[in-house]
Design a binder for these strands. Structure first.
Length: 510
RNA sequence: GGCGAGUUGGCGGAGUGGUGACGCAGCGGAUUGCAAAUCCGUGUACACGAGUUCGAUUCUCGUACUCGCCUCCA
C-alpha cells in the first residue's frame, strides 16, 4: 500500500494519511454557491481535489472512495437574480425562478469543470434538499445546550464549545477585539453565528420550529456531510479562505452535535489564485470565468496543467505565459503518444501504465509540480528512443498512464486523434498516395478546418520539394504569423494549430 | 491591531543539514536549402542579520518586504 502524506491544517503538519476504513475512504469538499459562472479561482480546489480523488482511487480502489461536493443553493445573490427576473416580467413563482437560476448555474458549473477534466464526485448534494436535516441538527444543538433561539433566529453559542477557534488558531476574545462587524442585539456572544434566520416574502423560506426561515451558510455542510459520510470521515477540503469562519463553524456544529473528535480527521486547504499578485476575488472585481478562458481557446487541459504546476498550498499566479508553455508541453506529449498508433488508441480498455514515481509524487501531499517534471523526463526519454519502437512503447504507455492519473485524457483528445488520423491518410479523401502531412489541431476543430490545415501543410511541402524555396518561405512566414507551427520531417510536413485560427486568413494562402 | 503563509537564477518552479532539479528564455554546437522540431553542451539564484552546527539555502530567533484570513468569496 502506498503511503500517502497530507498536510493537515488541523495540526499544521504533514501527516501520514491513515483512513478510518480503507474500504471506504470518505472526502467532503466545499462546493460553490451557485449564483453565477465559476471564476478561475473556483476551479483551483476542483482540480486539486480531483487529483486527490484520483490518487485515493488509485491507491484504495475505484469503489473504495466516497467523494462528496455540495452545491450551496440557498443564497441572497441567487434570490436577487430571481427577483430581478421576476421584476423584468419572467414567468413563474419566486421559488421556481430561484430553482431555475440554481439549475442553470449548476449546469454551467458542471460543464466547465468537465472541461477541466474533473470527475464528478459521487454525491453532489444541494442545500435545498437537506433543509429538514439542517432543522433537525439545529434543534439537536439547542437541546444539547450549544445553540439558542432568539427573535426567529437560531444561533450557535461559541462559548459552549471550548475548542472553538482551534482550526484557524484564533481566540474568541481576540476576534471580538478586532471585529469589524456590527453585533446583532440578540447575540449572547458577538461571535455567535446563525444556524437559522427568518425569511420575509421576498426570500425563500421553509417552515421550522422557529417560524418561516432559511438556514445559515455553515450548517448545510455539517448536515450534508453527516447524512452522506457519517459522524466521522477522513478528509475535508476547501479553499483556505473558508478556514475561518466556515470550517471553524462546521467543526463546532458537528462536534457539538455528534461528539468530540468526530467530523473530519484531515483538513486540506488550497491557497488562493492570484492575478497580478492579488487574490482573485469578487470584491476586487479582478476575476474572469473559466468559460471566458475556454472561449478564448485556452483548453481545460491547459488550465489543469497550469494549476498542477504550482503546489496547492502556495498562491498561484495565472499568466498567459504559463498557459502558452502548458499548451506546448501538452501538445508535445500528445504528439509523442500518437506514435502508439491507431490500434492502441482504438482499444478503449487501455489506460496506460501508472509508474510509481507519479504515485509517489502525488502521495507526497499532492506534489503535482513534481509529477509534471517526471512527465517531462519520461517524454524526453521516449523522444530519445524514438527510433527503437520496442523500447519506446512501454515508455509511452507510462506517459499515457501518468497523464490519466493526473486527470488528462489523451484517449479522448481530438487533438491526438486528429494527429493519428491525418498522419496516416489523406484527409481530402482521395486515394492518391501523397506526402505524409500531419496535422495537430486544437480541441473542437471542425472537419472543414482540418481540411484547410491539411491543404496548407501539403502546399508548403510541395513548394519545398519542387525547390521553390522563396515561395515556401513566404508561405511559412505567413502561416507562422497566424499562430500556427510548422515542421518538416523526412517524409512530409506537420502543421500544428494549438489554438483556433481564422480560416478566412488561411484560405487565401492556398 | 490579532492570527497565518511566503521570500530560490531574466521569468516560472521543485527540493535538500554538506555549495542548489527541471521548464521557458539566452548562448554555443549537431542537424536543416533556410527554418522548425529534436539532440548535446553552457552561465547567473537560495531576501537580510544573528545563532545552533565540523558545515545551513535547508533548523532557531530577529528584521524587511509580499500575500492571505479576521467581511460575501474557492
Amino acid at each position: 500500500m502506498v503511503e500517502i502524506k497530507l498536510h493537515n491544517s488541523k495540526t499544521r503538519k504533514k501527516e501520514v494519511f491513515t483512513p478510518i476504513n480503507s474500504d471506504n475512504v470518505r472526502m467532503y469538499v466545499c462546493g460553490p454557491t451557485v449564483y453565477d459562472r465559476a471564476h478561475l479561482g473556483n476551479a483551483r480546489p476542483v482540480v486539486v481535489f480531483d487529483v486527490l480523488n484520483r490518487l485515493l482511487r488509485h491507491v484504495y480502489g475505484e469503489d473504495h472512495v466516497t467523494y462528496v461536493r455540495n452545491f450551496t443553493d440557498v443564497d441572497d445573490k441567487i434570490n436577487a437574480t430571481a427577483k430581478a427576473r421576476k421584476d423584468a416580467g419572467a414567468e413563474g413563482t419566486m421559488e421556481e425562478l430561484i430553482a431555475a437560476r440554481s439549475d442553470e448555474t449548476i449546469k454551467w458549473y458542471l460543464e466547465d469543470m468537465e472541461e477541466l477534466g474533473a470527475r464528478e464526485p459521487d454525491h453532489m448534494p444541494r442545500a435545498t434538499q437537506y433543509i429538514e436535516q439542517m432543522i433537525a441538527m439545529s434543534q439537536d444543538l439547542i437541546d444539547k445546550g450549544h445553540a439558542y433561539a432568539a427573535e426567529g433566529h437560531v444561533l450557535f453559542a461559541v462559548d459552549s464549545y471550548k475548542k472553538y477557534g482551534a482550526l484557524s488558531g484564533r481566540s474568541v476574545d481576540d476576534m471580538i477585539a478586532g471585529a469589524r462587524v456590527e453585533v446583532a442585539p440578540y447575540k449572547r456572544n458577538p461571535m455567535d453565528f446563525v444556524l437559522w434566520k427568518p425569511s420575509d416574502e421576498n426570500t425563500p423560506g421553509w417552515d421550522s420550529p422557529w417560524g418561516k426561515g432559511r438556514p445559515g451558510w455553515h450548517i448545510e455542510c455539517s448536515a450534508m456531510a453527516f447524512e452522506l459520510l457519517g459522524e466521522t470521515f477522513d478528509i475535508h477540503g476547501g479553499g483556505n479562505d473558508l478556514q475561518f469562519p466556515h470550517h471553524e463553524n462546521e467543526i463546532a456544529q458537528s462536534c457539538c452535535a455528534h461528539g468530540e473528535d468526530t467530523f473530519a480527521q484531515y483538513w486540506l486547504h488550497n491557497e488562493m489564485l492570484q492575478v497580478e499578485g492579488k487574490k482573485m476575488s469578487k470584491s476586487l472585481g479582478n476575476f474572469f470565468t473559466v468559460r471566458d478562458l475556454l472561449d478564448q481557446g485556452t483548453t481545460g487541459e491547459v488550465i489543469r496543467y497550469v494549476f498542477l504546476q504550482t503546489h496547492y498550498r502556495k498562491p498561484m499566479n495565472w499568466t498567459e505565459l504559463k498557459a502558452d508553455q502548458a499548451t506546448k508541453h501538452l501538445s508535445n506529449y500528445y504528439r509523442l503518444l500518437a506514435d502508439l498508433g491507431r490500434t492502441y488508441w482504438e482499444d478503449e480498455t487501455r489506460s496506460g501504465i501508472v509508474a510509481d514515481e507519479f504515485v509517489s509524487a502525488l502521495a507526497d501531499d499532492i506534489n503535482g509540480s513534481l509529477a509534471l517534471h517526471h512527465l517531462h523526463d519520461l517524454a524526453k526519454e521516449a523522444r530519445s528512443k524514438r527510433n527503437f519502437p520496442e523500447k519506446v512503447k512501454p515508455l509511452l504507455e507510462r506517459l499515457h498512464g501518468a497523464l490519466v492519473l493526473l486527470g488528462f485524457n489523451p484517449a479522448k483528445s481530438e487533438a491526438l486523434w486528429f494527429f493519428i488520423e491525418t498522419d496516416e491518410k489523406d484527409l481530402l479523401g482521395t486515394n492518391e498516395t501523397g506526402p505524409n502531412i500531419g496535422v495537430f489541431g486544437w480541441v473542437g476543430i471542425s472537419e472543414i478546418e482540418k481540411g484547410v490545415l491539411f491543404r496548407v501543410g501539403r502546399k508548403w511541402w510541395e513548394l519545398r520539394t519542387q525547390g521553390q524555396y522563396n515561395l515556401a518561405d513566404e508561405l511559412r512566414d505567413e502561416i507562422l504569423s497566424l499562430g500556427l507551427m510548422l515542421e518538416a520531417t523526412k517524409n512530409g510536413a506537420q502543421v500544428k494549430a494549438p489554438k483556433p485560427v481564422s480560416m478566412e486568413k488561411l484560405e487565401p494562402l492556398l
